[in-house]
Design a protein around this nucleic acid. Structure first.
Lengths: 209, 209
DNA sequence: TGCGCCAAAATTGGCACCAATTTATAGATG
DNA sequence: CATCTATAAATTGGTGCCAATTTTGGCGCA
């Protein structure tokens, strides 16, 4: 369930993550109106809490705010999605040399395990589970750069890209291909082959375009 | 003065930019306590406005929030600054091929003009003016990628890096070197030499380390 | 003189109320 | 019957107030 930040902080942050997760899961369609009163009842909190959470979501550009008219789920502009995917691919590819240079053996084993977890969910798991497993894989991959800011920035970007539950991984064939690419990445890291890793990452991310 | 976003939006955003600019200019030292009442008087606004602005600044990690104790200017951790500079260099270097590929002639002329503006401010201009000119140069450089998300992400990162007014460009020699590197970048873009551009960018950003 | 404790002042943070604006609804009119 | 209009309902956004917590200042005591 907890797709965003793992640790729980203050109450406002928990609420923010709940709403963000629900939006990404498709509970609120793009463009739909987020009434404060409805949210207040849905999440069993006070009105000011909701307002803080909505303001934060608007800052993150997950929703948009129209004065005196309320908050609406951000409608993904095609050009913007293309630019975000391009940027994400650019950063993750640029991180490839750091991953092969700085990654250790044990970290690589964890990565291989996460790739296997994703593989195991191809047939049995729900879309949500698959999406979480995919996210866990990429988080581990980026944590191997030794620079936590990279993973944090990518996480921020990913939130703004319409994700799997909203209909990205259409076919089972596409998911199988993703899994193959995961193992390609693991192999590239094991061989400390930055070029191969970069190539696999680029193909993996750009599949969505 | 307006170092951050150029256009003015709603009142809260204006207030946020004012406070952010003052923090970056060094009006509030790192670690200092931002009392809501003082800010309320300083910026002539209401208490809730201040609270929204402070919450946004905390989300951007320009300040930190301690429950029941208030907001404090973020104290730059050496490791974190190193990681942020590393990430910034990584992204801007990765953007180099896009700049030389996508950049047009007129855009390159604007870039050259901005490099000249910075050069002219070496002796006469204030630190603030120099910093603004430097920022304008890099904004133009990144806008030439054709992907506005890149410039936006870098702008976000730069806000979290202690900047010139806080004592980064110590010597005049260092500033002159920065200007030389600017012209190196212009030349590299003109020659559509991605490798030379990448090299100049990396040296330029890493000077601060 | 220095340290710990207690009361007073100040600050934060949440709650409830109310005005301004927008949206929905019903009625009048061509 | 559709459309425009006026009224009512609902939603947003702002202001003020008050409790909870923390910081400050002063006092007693070793």
């Amino acid at each position: 369930m907890e797709t965003l930040k793992p640790a729980h902080n203050d109450a406002e942050t928990d609420l923010l993550n709940q709403i963000a997760t629900d939006i990404q899961a498709g509970a609120y369609a793009p463009g739909s109106w987020l009434k404060q009163i409805e949210l207040q009842h849905r999440y069993k909190t006070s009105r000011p809490m909701i307002r803080v959470a909505l303001d934060r979501l608007a800052q993150k550009q997950l929703i948009r705010h129209e004065p005196n008219r309320g908050y609406y789920v951000y409608e993904a502009d095609d050009d913007e999605v293309r630019d975000l995917l391009d940027l994400r691919a650019m950063i993750e590819c640029a991180a490839a040399p750091r991953i092969v240079r700085h990654g250790t053996g044990p970290e690589c084993e964890i990565l291989a395990q996460l790739a296997q977890n994703f593989e195991d969910l191809i047939d049995t798991g729900s879309i949500i589970k698959q999406h979480e497993a995919n996210q866990a894989f990429h988080r581990q991959l980026l944590s191997m750069t030794g620079n936590p800011q990279i993973a944090a920035t990518i996480a921020e970007l990913r939130h703004r890209i319409p994700s799997a539950p909203a209909g990205q991984w259409k076919t089972r064939q596409r998911i199988k291909q993703s899994s193959i690419e995961h193992f390609e990445m693991v192999t590239a890291v094991r061989n400390r082959d930055a070029d191969a890793l970069e190539d696999a990452i680029r193909r993996h991310i750009m599949q969505a375009a």
